[in-house]
């Protein structure tokens, strides 16, 4: 064998060692998060819908609880954690107004409800509801809800049933939070 052929063989072997030693990048496939946006818009629209259908049925609280559990089951199949807090208001007499809160945020919540100058702090256990009645409420009034780090101020009509809520969708590090009203 001639000397040049040894050098060629040596070059081939060294090149092979070089490419064998190269690290192969692991293919990384990460589940997308863009569907959270669609799902949150869907539920932002459907929660007030469910409330209205529940009013029609005469038991909005049972319907809202049922719908929240249904949405949670559906979203679990998409590996999405679902949480919601829904506040309902309706009149129980010509001057008195009932406020009910259903908590599905995974932990007990203390909610400060203010109507005019009346403040009431309501403690709601997870997956439970609680309610209170405000007396001598005007035909139109300002109401505010404060819980966790959220605060919402609204103007409600006493003789109209109303809903305000917050929902959150979580998948790994992505969280989408939306308010809904009706």
């Amino acid at each position: 064998m001639r000397k040049g052929q040894f050098f060629l063989l040596g070059a081939f072997l060294v090149s092979t060692l070089f490419f064998v030693g190269l690290p192969r990048p692991a293919s990384l496939s990460v589940e997308g998060m863009e569907d959270l946006s669609y799902l949150s818009l869907n539920l932002q629209k459907e929660m007030p819908n469910a409330f209205n259908l529940g009013l029609k049925q005469g038991d909005y609280l049972a319907v809202m609880k049922n719908f929240t559990w249904f949405a949670d089951n559906v979203l679990k199949n998409r590996r999405v954690s679902f949480g919601a807090l829904a506040c309902f208001g309706s009149n129980i007499s010509t001057t008195d107004f009932n406020v009910t809160i259903f908590n599905y945020l995974g932990a007990s919540q203390a909610v400060n409800i203010t109507i005019g100058s009346s403040l009431y702090t309501m403690l709601v256990t997870n997956n439970q509801s609680n309610s209170t009645t405000f007396t001598s409420v005007g035909a139109t009034f300002n109401i505010s809800f404060r819980y966790a780090r959220e605060e919402k101020n609204m103007t409600w009509v006493r003789d109209k049933s109303s809903i305000y809520g917050m929902l959150n969708l979580t998948r790994r590090d992505s969280v989408v939070i939306k308010d809904f009203e009706g």
Partner: peptide, 16 residues
Amino acid sequence: AGTYIVAGLSSYQPRE
């Protein structure tokens, strides 16, 4: 697959 949740139309009938 995409998913859409519907509470109902004329009455409460939750569907996926």
